[in-house]
Simulated scan of single mutants.
Amino acid sequence: MVNKPVLPLSPIPKKWEKPLRGTVKINFDAAVSKTKTGFGVIARDSEGFVIGGGYGFKNEEMTGDWAKLYAFEESLKIARLLNITKVTFETDCAKHQ
Rank of each mutant, 00 (worst) to 15 (best):
N3F: 05
L76H: 08
T37M: 10
T23F: 11
R80L: 12
E73K: 07
E60H: 01
F49E: 00
S46T: 10
R21D: 07
G64V: 15
D92F: 06
A94W: 15
T37D: 04
N59W: 10
R80T: 00
P11Q: 08
M62Y: 06
V6P: 14
A43Y: 10
G53N: 02
E47V: 04
D29E: 07
S10Q: 10
P5T: 10
A43Q: 08
A43T: 02
K68E: 07
R44H: 04
T37E: 04
K18L: 01
W66F: 07
G38M: 11
A94N: 13
R21W: 13
I51M: 00
I26C: 13
D65Y: 10
T23Q: 13
P11W: 09
W66D: 11
F39P: 00
P19M: 12
D65H: 13
K25Q: 09
N27F: 15
G53E: 05
L69K: 01
I78L: 15
V24S: 11
G53I: 07
K18C: 00
F28W: 09
G48I: 00
G22F: 10
P13T: 07
D29M: 15
D45N: 13
I42C: 04
D45R: 08
Q97T: 05
G56Y: 03
A67M: 05
V41W: 02
A79Q: 05
G52D: 00
K14Q: 08
A71C: 05
G38K: 14
F72M: 06
K14R: 05
L76I: 02
G40I: 02
F89N: 06
Y70E: 13
T37K: 12
D29H: 15
E60A: 03
G48H: 10
S33R: 10
G53K: 01
T91D: 05
E90H: 02
N3S: 09
V87M: 04
W66G: 03
G40N: 11
D29K: 06
T91H: 10
S10F: 10
Y55I: 03
L81Q: 06
T37A: 07
D92T: 11
L9H: 08
S10H: 14
A71E: 04
V87P: 06
T35I: 00
T63A: 14
V2Y: 07
T63M: 10
S33T: 15
A79T: 11
A30P: 01
R80E: 05
G54H: 12
K58T: 11
F72W: 07
L82P: 00
N27P: 11
C93Y: 15
